[in-house]
Design a protein around this nucleic acid. Structure first.
Lengths: 235, 235
DNA sequence: CGCGTTCTTGACTGCTTTCAAAGATGGTGG
DNA sequence: CCACCATCTTTGAAAGCAGTCAAGAACGCG
């Protein structure tokens, strides 16, 4: 409910990301900026959308990381995907309830997504964002189904680098990683113990630098080749 | 390119499924029927959409099974999801190319999806189908990430029963299963050997009947409880 | 009836999990 | 400034689920 979010906007975050998807005009940027004035802040672990709750309006992640997650009775849980600044929680076109819980992973601020008028750049940015989200969801399936622990980590880091970059969060090749190894494990279908061991081997091989919540990939080219990483096609 | 598909329509298949999603009127059913007149037939393994190819128009699976699949250079492949009769291949709202290959699993016939006019039941059926597809995609992630082989099979069979039922393909509790164990393995992130062994234990426990490409689940209630199976919420 | 594909089976390997406990780390209050 | 606590990371040993390799049986089709 505060204005703080707006001041955090440029040069990193949601606006950078959305502007990268379509050439927004001044008015559209104004809409985004004023929507951000009225943001909601959640602490880590806070619930943004409950499973089964109706979603009447689209929302934008302004800062922080959120995730879609499914919980099992026995305590297992699977993170279906992460939401980074500039990502949207889309309201469905037909009345529908959220198929999953959406929760804050780090401290998060969100706001309502201003309506883009049909044919406008904002609407185009939203549409493109939706396609990209689907692309990453397919990637997540392939990751879990066919890659081993080592490859999953590499593939995931490449994706996160790419997405952080789109949000202007990468600086001198480093990007923030506001999650614990346990959360990463829940996203990659592994145990935190095994994530820990695999991260260590990545560091030992000097493929990854990781300290104090900041990450850096040493040689993305080589890694991308190793796991056949593909970027979503923009066109 | 033939009319045969139309004759295969009622009472099973695409039309049944779409009509289950919204109360289609006579005219809309007419549109579907005539669209089906002009269908394309593919043999098993035929490519319906190539990865990276533009998708200019939506298509409907009329009969048979298709799948979204990603191939790796080393021969591994992951099936991201199956497309059953009545499922759609959606053209994106913004110009975009297909993020994955879509291939026929069994012999398949597809046709162009007639445009539903905004606000009409057909458009609503499409929108609902899109939401349901997303729901199943999330399910697939959770399945691969957090269920063991036994649970994956059970969860998958429950989904396929549900979807076959929506297409009117279930009769006296039995439904067709036009795929090999190897394809199932590629969908569930397992090896065909392990799928085979797990199927055997399902049969041994009399949870599943499976012969001649037809399946039957003995006690869906109990199975659904065991894997916390949830249906997409229709509302 | 013959051949290619699919299904089964066995033995062995190994990646990942499980269980437990010992270090770090960071924030908080005295 | 430091003790203290909760959270997170790291390590070790042992067990288990799923993969690999190889070969034989069964099935379906022409």
């Amino acid at each position: 409910m505060k204005t703080e979010a707006a001041s955090k906007f440029p040069p990193a975050g949601a606006q950078v990301r959305l502007a990268s998807l379509a050439p927004l005009d001044k008015q559209e940027i104004g809409l985004l900026t004023s929507a951000a004035q009225n943001s909601r802040r959640l602490r880590a672990h806070g619930e943004i959308v409950a499973e089964g709750a109706p979603i009447n309006a689209s929302q934008i992640i302004l800062s922080g990381w959120a995730c879609r997650v499914r919980h099992f009775r026995d305590g297992r849980r699977q993170i279906l995907g992460f939401l980074l600044p500039g990502d949207l929680i889309f309201a469905p076109e037909v009345p529908w309830s959220s198929p999953t819980t959406i929760a804050a992973v780090s401290e998060v601020s969100v706001c309502l997504a201003p309506e883009g008028q049909a044919g406008g750049a904002l609407a185009k940015a939203y549409g493109t964002a939706a396609e990209i989200e689907r692309f990453y969801l397919y990637r997540q399936v392939a990751r879990l189904g066919r890659l081993n622990a080592y490859e999953r980590l590499v593939d995931w880091f490449l994706e996160i680098h790419e997405r952080s970059d789109a949000a202007g969060l990468v600086s001198s090749d480093r990007f923030p990683l506001p999650i614990t190894q346990e959360i990463l494990a829940d996203a990659l279908g592994l145990t935190s113990v095994h994530v820990n061991r695999t991260l260590q081997s990545l560091r030992r091989e000097e493929v990854l630098e990781l300290r104090g919540g900041t990450a850096r990939l040493t040689d993305r080219e080589a890694l991308a080749r190793a796991v056949e990483y593909r970027s979503p096609t923009y066109r």
